[in-house]
């Protein structure tokens, strides 16, 4: 029988759907009787989704234009 600590150790693989069938079943059995672990995994998934949806630093338009200018220059200088 898995403990709550075991659930935490397996949490990433469980959320990614990477656990082998038997292990996944053991996690599900534990979750059926443990409210705290159900809450924990829900909130861990929420954490992953928050990071996923958070904005990465916005790209400076000048940076993009600089890259495009270099490419234009490269094209012009090609024989």
């Amino acid at each position: 029988m898995l403990t709550c600590k075991n659930i935490s150790e397996l949490s990433d693989e469980y959320l990614e759907g990477e656990l082998p069938f038997k292990k996944k079943l053991s996690v599900k059995l534990h979750l059926a009787i443990c409210k705290n672990c159900r809450r924990y995994l829900n909130y861990l998934q929420l954490t992953v989704n928050v990071v996923r949806q958070s904005e990465s630093s916005s790209i400076d338009k000048n940076t993009i234009n600089e890259i495009m200018d270099k490419i234009e220059l490269e094209v012009q200088n090609k024989p």
Partner: peptide
């Protein structure tokens, strides 16, 4: 191996609500 300090209940339960 069981929780001694389990996760607390969160008010905002969606990424959109938090972000």
């Amino acid at each position: 191996g069981h929780w001694s300090k389990p996760p607390s209940s969160w008010h905002n339960e969606t990424p959109d609500a938090l972000l």
